[in-house]
C-alpha cells in the first residue's frame, strides 16, 4: 500500500502572535513552527498502517525552507520519504492553489490512500482535503475518527454533530481527513531521527510537477485580520455560590431563555 500524508507547518501553539504590518497575516519572523496538530494524527494513522504490514508512507508539504524541519520530524517518526514543494508564487496561495499542488504531487504516483488533517490550526478552512479529493477524482471522508482497512476498502467512522457517528465503506483509492484524538501520536525517537538522515527529501519547484504561478494564483485573498475589540456589558455577579446561582437564574429568566 502506498500512502500520501499531506502536512502543513503552522505557528507553534505557544508562539506569541502579532499581526503583521500589512494587517493581512501574522508576523512570522522569530516565531517557532510545528506540524499542524490535525496532520500529526493523520501521519500517525498512516504510520500505524505501515506498522501493521507492507506500506510506504510519503509525506508532502508546501512552504518555505523552514518546513523541512517538519518533514524531518515526520521522517524521524517513521515516514519513508518526503516531498517539499515551494515557489514564491505560493506565498499567498489559497486552499484551491494548495490542493492543486498536492494533486499534482499525488498524480505522479499511484497512492492508495491520501491522509490529511481535517483542518489547519492557523487558517481553519478545512477545504484542502475535499478539494484535493475532487481534483484527484477519488472519494473522501472528513472528520474521520476511526479507520479499518480490509480488502481494498476502508470502513470509516466520521464524527457528526452531538457525538453521533456516521459509518461508511469507502473503496480505495480515497482521501481521509482526520479528526484530532483518533490515535495517540508517537514521538520521533532518537533512533528514528538518526535514521531519517538517510531518507530521501525531494525538493520540487512548481515546474517539476507541471504547474506554474498562474495555475495556482489565489482566487481568495485576506482583507485583514484583527483582534476583536473587548466586549462591553458583562454583568459581574457577586455573593455566595447560592446567591450567584439565584441571580443567574433570574437573569436567564429576564432574557426569556428559561
Amino acid at each position: 500500500m502506498k500512502i500520501l500524508v499531506c502536512l502543513k507547518q503552522v505557528p507553534h501553539k505557544d508562539a506569541r502572535l502579532e499581526i503583521g504590518s500589512d494587517g493581512t497575516w501574522i508576523k512570522e519572523d522569530g516565531i517557532k513552527f510545528e506540524i499542524n496538530d490535525y496532520d500529526n494524527y493523520a501521519l500517525e494513522e498512516a504510520l500505524r498502517l505501515k506498522d501493521a504490514g507492507e506500506a510506504e508512507v510519503v509525506v508532502a508539504t508546501i512552504g518555505p525552507d523552514r518546513v523541512t524541519q517538519s518533514l524531518r520530524t515526520a521522517l524521524g517518526m517513521g515516514a519513508d520519504r518526503a516531498i517539499h514543494v515551494w515557489d514564491d508564487s505560493l506565498a499567498n496561495a489559497d486552499s484551491l492553489g494548495i490542493a492543486k499542488v498536492l494533486a499534482a504531487v499525488a498524480k505522479e504516483e499511484n497512492f492508495d490512500v491520501v491522509f490529511c488533517g481535517l483542518m489547519s490550526d492557523d487558517s481553519n478552512y478545512a477545504m484542502v482535503g475535499p478539494m484535493l479529493a475532487q481534483l484527484l477524482d477519488i472519494p473522501h471522508v472528513t472528520a474521520v475518527v476511526k479507520t479499518d482497512f480490509e480488502n481494498g476498502a476502508v470502513k470509516v467512522e466520521k464524527e457528526l454533530e452531538g457525538g453521533t457517528l456516521e459509518v461508511s465503506q469507502v473503496p480505495l483509492p480515497c482521501l481521509l481527513a482526520v479528526q484530532t484524538g483518533i490515535n495517540e501520536v508517537r514521538y520521533a525517537s532518537l533512533k528514528g531521527i538518526m535514521q531519517a538522515k538517510k531518507k530521501p527529501l525531494d525538493k520540487k519547484a512548481l515546474s517539476d510537477i507541471g504547474l506554474d504561478g498562474a495555475a495556482v494564483a489565489p482566487k481568495l485573498s485576506i482583507e485583514k485580520i484583527y483582534t476583536p475589540p473587548k466586549g462591553e456589558g458583562a454583568n459581574l455577579l457577586s455573593g455566595s455560590a447560592d446567591e450567584i446561582a439565584t441571580q443567574m437564574v433570574g437573569k436567564i429568566k429576564e432574557l426569556g431563555l428559561l
Binding site: R72, T73, L190, I193
Partner: peptide, 9 residues
Amino acid sequence: PEHQLFRET
C-alpha cells in the same frame, strides 16, 4: 538538524 529534532522530541 538532528539536534533540533531531538530537542523537539
